[in-house]
């Protein structure tokens, strides 16, 4: 039996998926092991968030909502770390809470070392309220008081006696908030936090959500936008740290090139057919 050999342009479009997996894996592994240190430019959306926090008076309170779960830690956690770093370093009061059950302990692991580094006192300069369900309903409730919905913080301390909540008793008393989110929670802060309580906001979102929230930057509803690992890396650059986001940027670059290469490879036979069709159409015309 004679085995029929596929023409090369057809074979290029029908490689086994595991070849794609292998090349994508290698495109990530090599830059992680041998960094290229590609230069990173800070975009205006990210700079706008940084500038807003930087220019707030020292007496103001900023909320960083850790609205993500382990599935989006790689993109969101570096953003949350850099934002908390910035708020604490610049001497503003920091309030943290989350709409996700998994993220209370993650926030705790972020805040503790930063507080030690910048000598911030718990309950006076920063607080981790932990998780509470409710999303938009919770936010409505926070508009009247933090302590009613959060009688205790993540550590189990009573919030009634905390200095932070006598100075900033409700959501309305915030000067700025950033929602580091992997889902639609940003919508609640736009529609309630900003529209009803007048608290300006920015968002740090996963790359998937970038197109959706561009429209809110254009209307001015979002002060700025941190998008995906690149947004996180840009913020790391602004605060002067080199975290996991910066480390991942080289791998991200090379992996994108590999995927684009595969997209072109998959289209070789399609483009060939289009060209052949046009040539034959021209011949018929002649």
């Amino acid at each position: 039996m004679v085995r029929k050999v596929k023409p090369i342009w057809e074979a290029l479009g029908k490689l086994d998926r595991r070849w794609v997996y292998l090349f994508v894996s290698l495109s990530i592994l090599f830059p992680l092991l041998f960094p290229l240190n590609l230069p990173l430019t800070v975009t205006k959306h990210v700079k706008a968030v940084y500038d807003r926090i930087e220019n707030l008076p020292d007496t103001s309170a900023v909320l960083i909502a850790f609205d993500f779960d382990p599935s989006s830690i790689p993109e969101c956690l570096p953003m949350a770390i850099s934002l908390c770093h910035h708020v604490m370093k610049s001497g503003k009061v920091l309030i943290v809470y989350t709409n996700f059950p998994e993220t209370g302990p993650i926030a705790e692991r972020v805040l503790e070392p930063l507080a030690a580094k910048f000598q911030r006192e718990y309950g006076k300069h920063y607080v981790n309220l932990g998780f509470k369900p409710g999303n938009d309903v919770l936010l409505m409730a926070l508009g009247s008081s933090w302590t009613t919905s959060f009688p205790k913080d993540f550590r189990g301390n009573s919030t009634q006696e905390m200095e932070i909540f006598s100075r900033f008793p409700s959501y309305r008393h915030l000067s700025f908030m950033v929602d580091v989110a992997h889902g639609a929670t940003v919508d609640f802060y736009i529609t309630i936090g900003l529209a009803q309580f007048g608290v300006p906001l920015a968002a740090g979102v996963t790359a998937v959500s970038i197109p959706q929230y561009e429209a809110f930057v254009q209307t001015g509803q979002l002060v700025g936008l941190l998008g995906g690992l690149k947004g996180a890396a840009e913020y790391e650059k602004l605060v002067g740290t080199k975290g996991k986001a910066t480390r991942g940027m080289d791998a991200q670059s090379v992996a994108h090139l590999v995927i684009i290469f595969f997209i072109f490879l998959g289209n070789v036979s399609v483009v060939r057919n289009i060209i052949l069709k046009n040539i034959s159409a021209m011949r018929i015309k002649k």
Partner: peptide, 14 residues
């Protein structure tokens, strides 16, 4: 941007 996001997750695990 979806490709970008998913790759970031893989980068983190690697």
């Amino acid at each position: 941007t979806t490709v970008m996001g998913r790759l970031s997750l893989l980068i983190s695990r690697f």
